[in-house]
């Protein structure tokens, strides 16, 4: 398959293969992204996060359908956890999106976290770029079910939709504060259930404490499975976007995201170099042995590693 020609023609099969190449760390994928970089930056990226089973996939499905009615091209990246034991994963988010499968204007991709701890996969950034190149207007990124500190979604999304549900325990504190703070728009899904109003109030109270006077995240009660409240929810997402643009925060957030990305690529490149270095001689394992035998300390070892690395140059 000629990936380049396929990408140029907007072919889904080629795009799908390119995402696989990114996930598997094939250098050729980076080259293709580089060649197409001028096509990047037009898509809006919406993060969908929240506790396990809250209805993230169902909400995403409904929002995507709403946008399809407006003729927009939509992509969805859905992340589920990889088993740390086997390295395998069951990626089940598509179950809730079945009838989007055959819609020409929708591209859905499931990803395992493959060891990443922030609620995403480290290839999400690359997958977003592929979908952007393909001309998608909106890209939804569904995180794994969050609970502790999975907040990497703020690093990639323009708007973070936090999907909550009634009865998460006695209070919202069950979800750690750090996670609640990243929500730009809150949805209380499953509002057909008891306690939905109470949950919404609890979120409002928590937002009172945050005290950002310029922008206050709205809280919307929805019933995603019945498509109730979805239009109002979308309006709230649009309002957040308008605020981000008019306040100049949109560009600030994107710049921050780019900075994070550069540093991450840099770190990864460095780690790759060390790996290649290790194939030439067992520098790292020798240093490890030395530290273990208390001949040197880890700080000195790291310094030595960097000087070996700069001596070896362009590995």
């Amino acid at each position: 398959m000629d990936i380049r020609a396929g990408i140029a023609a907007g072919n889904k099969r080629a795009a799908a293969r390119l995402i696989t190449m990114i996930e598997n760390g094939e250098p050729e994928a980076v080259e293709i992204i580089k060649e197409n970089y001028d096509k990047i930056g037009t898509a809006r990226i919406i993060g969908v996060t929240g506790p396990p089973g809250a209805g993230k996939s169902t909400v995403t499905d409904k929002l995507a359908k709403l946008l399809r009615k407006q003729g927009k091209k939509v992509a969805i990246i859905a992340v589920d956890p990889t088993s740390p034991f086997s390295g395998g994963a069951i990626l089940g988010d598509r179950i809730r999106m079945s009838d989007l499968n055959t819609d020409e204007g929708v591209f859905i991709r499931s990803m395992g976290t493959r060891g990443a701890l922030g609620g995403l996969s480290k290839s999400v950034n690359g997958a977003i770029k592929v979908m952007d190149i393909l001309g998608c207007d909106y890209i939804f990124v569904e995180t794994v079910g969050v609970g502790q500190s999975e907040i990497d979604i703020v690093k990639v999304a323009d708007t973070v939709l936090m999907v909550m549900v009634p009865g998460l325990g006695d209070d919202i504190q069950a979800i750690k504060a750090g996670i609640m703070e990243i929500g730009d728009v809150f949805a209380v899904n499953k509002s057909d259930r008891e306690g939905a109003e109470k949950t919404a109030t609890e979120i409002e109270l928590m937002l009172d404490l945050n005290g950002n006077t310029e922008y206050r995240p709205p809280v919307k009660n929805i019933i995603a499975k019945d498509n109730k409240g979805i239009e109002e929810l979308w309006e709230a997402i649009e309002k957040h976007h308008e605020y981000m643009i008019s306040s100049g925060n949109f560009n600030k957030r994107r710049q921050k995201a780019i900075e994070t990305e550069i540093l991450e690529i840099f770190k990864q490149n460095l780690l790759d170099k060390i790996e290649r270095l290790e194939k030439k001689g067992e520098y790292l394992s020798d240093l490890t042995k030395k530290v273990f035998n208390k001949q040197i300390d880890p700080y000195t070892a790291a310094q030595e590693l960097s000087s070996i690395l700069s001596k070896e140059g362009g590995i």
Partner: peptide, 26 residues
Amino acid sequence: RDAGMEVIYTGLRQTPEQIAEAAIQE
């Protein structure tokens, strides 16, 4: 999954068209 594979599970009642399209996208 336990053998280290990434399994995309699409759920019940899929049409052949849905299955083929999902296979391509994934």
